[in-house]
């Protein structure tokens, strides 16, 4: 689908949704749900409860604020991803500040979710990854998303961004390194 076709189609669907057309909304929803869900699940590092919460909140915000969506500035999927990214950032910042509170540090686990040690450890690890992802600069996050969530090859990413594969490989290496460093900063030892 060409750019102008996409703009025309999404503008028409947006107008229909604003007029209260449920089928138009369902069309947009079905088209974007899987991509957005995969993105949110990735950003939550597989934490199912968090990702479902963020996913739900993203769609609710989207349906309420669809009037502000401008198809000429980007696709509907991209607009949704922007909403989700903001929510994720705030969500994990809130969690980080809660984790560093005296109550959380005293027993080392969230009081509402008593879990076996192994589960707790993997959850803590996932939480750290999710927080590290939330701290990443946008261009690093985008290239990691292209590579690992959308499963694109380096050549495909390079073509889409009109860059050389070598430049993309270099960017990926730096992005992974930045993620690793952010993750290490999130480790409980680094709080002390």
């Amino acid at each position: 689908m060409s750019l102008s076709e996409r703009i025309w189609r999404e503008s028409a669907l947006k107008s229909a949704v604003l007029a209260g057309d449920e089928r138009a909304w369902q069309t947009l929803y079905e088209e974007c749900f899987d991509g957005l869900a995969a993105y949110v699940a990735w950003r939550c590092a597989g934490l199912r409860q968090d990702s479902e919460e963020i996913l739900q909140e993203t769609w609710l915000i989207a349906v309420r604020r669809i009037g502000s969506f401008d198809p000429e500035r980007g696709s509907f999927a991209g607009w949704l991803r922007g909403i989700a990214a903001n929510l994720l950032r705030n969500h994990f910042r809130r969690q980080a500040s809660r984790a560093s509170s005296p109550e959380m540090l005293s027993n080392g686990q969230c009081p509402q979710v008593p879990s076996p040690d192994a589960v707790l450890e993997s959850r803590e690890q996932a939480l750290q990854i999710a927080r590290a992802l939330a701290e990443l600069p946008e261009h690093y996050e985008a290239v990691l998303r292209d590579k690992y969530v959308e499963q694109r090859s380096v050549v495909q990413i390079a073509e889409a961004r009109q860059q050389t594969p070598k430049a993309i490989e270099s960017l990926l290496t730096r992005a992974r390194q930045a993620l690793r460093e952010a993750y290490q900063r999130m480790e409980p030892d680094s709080h002390e």
Binding site: G20, D21, Y29, S51, W59, L60
Partner: peptide
């Protein structure tokens, strides 16, 4: 990493209700 299946239908129903209210 994939989302759970039941979330899809639940969120769709929730958001469709908002579209209906708008109409």
């Amino acid at each position: 990493l994939t989302p759970s299946g039941h979330a899809r239908q639940a969120i769709l129903l929730q958001t469709q209700a908002l579209v209906r209210h708008r109409r």
